[in-house]
Write a protein that binds this DNA or RNA. Structure first.
Length: 602
RNA sequence: GGCCCCGUGGUGUAGCGGCCUAACAUGCCACCCUGUCACGGUGGAGAUCGAGGGUUCGAAUCCCUUCGGGGUCGCCA
């Protein structure tokens, strides 16, 4: 090796020791005589000193150095002269007095700062990703990501799981996300698909008797990107046999996450136990199936209070089968017209026709601010003349509002009311400074509907996937009222993100065929697509279940990063391109011909 | 596919019809400097303001188109 120590590990205990270091020039301070270099490697920084009197040859080298030059030095670790220690530096007690220096490779001036935390245009960062990844922040993120996977492997190994790889080239199956397809050279017109998840394979491993499987698995979905979505991403995928109760999985996951956070990011506060929240309840109270539970701002249904209101927006919503719901933004009674307009605009992006707000002005005299003393004059609302004081009071009581607060109300069809209020709730939490970055608020959401009615295609679709088993005793409902059936499905959520989801699976052919039938597959279709699963269930398939979660999202949250690209070494842009390698790209005609592919004209 | 934001020396920003022959910081280059640590000092180079078109006597600035990046709705079992 060209080095025998790492920069960041040196300390007082190395004083007098002769060391050889190699790394990058992080910063140079040239005093004409003395030259100071902060030398950086993965472990951190150390100051190395070039003195023209004691080592003229190395001082000549020092004058040539520039940022990001690759440098090897040999010298003696020495305590810094009294008064020149740097307490802001981990190695600030000591420095290395250089005896010999050698430039291993010079560097052009980088296109952006490696040695400063400056926001740089992300396109530029992605184009020079190898330089971006050299920045300490990115090295920290990827190191944390490694520690997460290491922790998971150790934890699951301890619990008797074994890691098994599954293929990347598999069979395309319908539904879910769009597949990435790989053309077959040997079979003209046929394609492999890249896995959206190893779902079927891990179930077959259960049939095969492995009992406890996991995998850090790369998954692919050809859908539009978001801050927390990439076309290829990594899941921690696991499956266990002989589980029947959802709790068997949930207890394990809770232990994993609590211990992992305690070990890797001990500064973060975690709740335990993780609450198990029914789907219906979170949709009502938080307007989202992945609620952020770090704060309150709970949503209340006020449909019954306003259904006979003279205000048409309210009464009409209820009479048309919809809902009117509200939550209280504490202390926001003074919101300006402009601020209220912003909320309305946000609501419209979710399909709501708008937001009705009721501002309860704070009383002139402090201390007599109870709801009882509320007067008509203190009520500010576009709908004020339709709303009696009594009605305002009962709405305020239901939503926990007091003078000085702003009640935010949305009326309309259920789905729209839910997601609009859900996003308004998160928006207001941000404005009110309620999003504590040092708190991880975990919860399991349970009791999801098994199936969802797709209006456009007029058919049922699985809410999670088609292998989820129904809740105990609800199988007869599959015939009478499929929409009422709940699945043994659970999601793990944290701070408004869905970290993962899983379920207890179907393990009999009979039930699986019944579900396929409900989803509109003929027996022939089901056999062609899923014959391997149906057949397998006839050879002693054990009851089993599992979960998968998005490792990128877990790493993002634990790193405190704003998006998953910050924890992925080589991510793609929102338009799914790689700016560093310029992919996707065209390929030679001959390569296409081998694959029996012709590009269709426009 | 829809909506929103951004694009100005290498980097980050300012400028938002004429004060722009484009400013500031930092980086870069040269010289000076022996205890700095975002070292300091002096001087210098560096931008057809993402691209194309239009409006105007005059465009970085207004309008249209387009490209790139980001956010988001749809989509993502």
């Amino acid at each position: 090796m060209l080095k025998n120590h790492n920069c960041g590990e040196l300390g007082a205990k190395h004083i007098e020791r002769e060391v050889t270091l190699a790394g990058w020039v992080h910063r140079r301070r040239d005093h004409g005589g003395l030259v100071f270099i902060d030398l950086r490697d993965r472990s951190g920084l150390v100051q190395v000193v070039f003195n023209p009197e004691t080592s003229p040859a190395s001082h000549v080298v020092a004058r040539e150095l520039r940022n990001e030059y690759v440098l090897m030095v040999t010298g003696q670790v020495s305590g810094r002269p009294a008064g020149t220690e740097n307490p802001r530096m981990a190695t600030g007690e000591i420095e290395v007095l250089v005896k010999h220096a050698e430039i291993l490779n010079p560097s052009k001036t980088p296109p952006f700062y490696i040695n400063e935390e400056v926001e740089v245009d992300e396109a530029l960062r992605l184009q020079y990703r190898y330089l971006d990844l050299r920045r300490p922040r990115m090295q920290d993120n990827l190191t944390l990501r490694y520690r997460i996977t290491k922790f998971i492997r150790d934890f699951l190994d301890e619990k008797d799981f074994i890691e098994i790889e599954t293929p990347i080239l598999i069979k395309s199956t319908p539904e879910g996300a769009r597949d990435y397809l790989v053309p077959s050279r040997l079979y003209p017109g046929k394609f492999y698909a890249l896995p959206q998840s190893p779902q079927q394979l891990k179930q077959l491993l259960m049939v095969a008797g492995y009992e406890r499987y996991f995998q850090i698995a790369r998954c692919f979905r050809d859908e539009d990107l978001r801050a927390d979505r990439q076309p290829e991403f990594t899941q921690l995928d696991l499956e266990m046999s002989f589980v029947n109760e959802e709790e068997d999985i949930l207890i394990l996951m809770e232990e994993l996450f609590v211990e992992m956070v305690a070990r890797l990011t001990p500064e973060k506060k975690v709740n335990r136990p993780f609450p198990r929240l029914p789907y219906r309840e979170v949709m009502l109270k938080y307007g989202s199936d992945k609620p952020d539970l770090r704060y309150g701002l709970d949503i209340s249904d006020i449909s019954d209070l306003v259904k006979d209101s003279e205000f048409g927006v309210f009464s009409r919503a209820v009479s048309e089968g919809g809902y009117v719901r509200a939550f209280t933004a504490t202390g926001c009674a003074g919101y300006s017209r402009r601020q209220l307009d912003e909320l309305g605009e946000l609501a419209r992006t979710y399909g709501a026709s708008g937001v009705i707000t009721i501002s309860l002005q704070a009383p002139e005299v402090a201390g007599i601010g109870g709801l009882e003393s509320l007067t008509q004059e203190m009520v500010r609302s576009a709908a004020a003349r339709f709303l009696s004081l009594d009605l305002v009071k009962s709405v305020a009581r239901r939503s926990g509002a007091a003078p000085g607060d702003l009640i935010i109300i949305v009326a309309g069809p259920q789905i729209i009311v839910e997601r609009t209020l859900g996003s308004l709730r998160q928006e207001m939490a941000g404005r009110l400074g309620l999003l504590d970055p040092d708190v991880f608020s975990f919860a399991f959401v349970v009791g999801f509907p098994l199936l969802e009615w797709k209006e456009q295609e007029s058919r049922w679709e699985p809410m999670h996937h088609m292998f989820t088993t129904p809740q105990e005793g609800q199988i007869p409902l599959l015939d009478s009222d499929p929409g009422k059936v709940q699945g043994k499905h659970y999601d793990l959520v944290c701070n408004g993100y869905e970290l993962g989801g899983g379920s207890i699976r179907i393990h009999t052919r009979e039930l699986q065929e019944k579900i396929f039938g409900l989803l509109g597959y003929s027996p022939e279709d089901a056999h062609e697509r899923f014959g391997h699963m149906l057949d397998a269930f006839e050879y002693g398939a054990p009851p089993h279940g599992g979960i998968a979660f998005g490792l990128d999202r877990v790493a993002m949250i634990m790193a405190g990063a704003p998006n998953i690209r910050e924890v992925i070494p080589f991510p793609k842009t929102q338009s799914a391109t790689d700016l560093m390698t310029d992919s996707p790209s065209s390929v030679p005609e001959q390569q296409l011909a081998e694959l029996h592919i012709k590009i269709a004209g426009e």
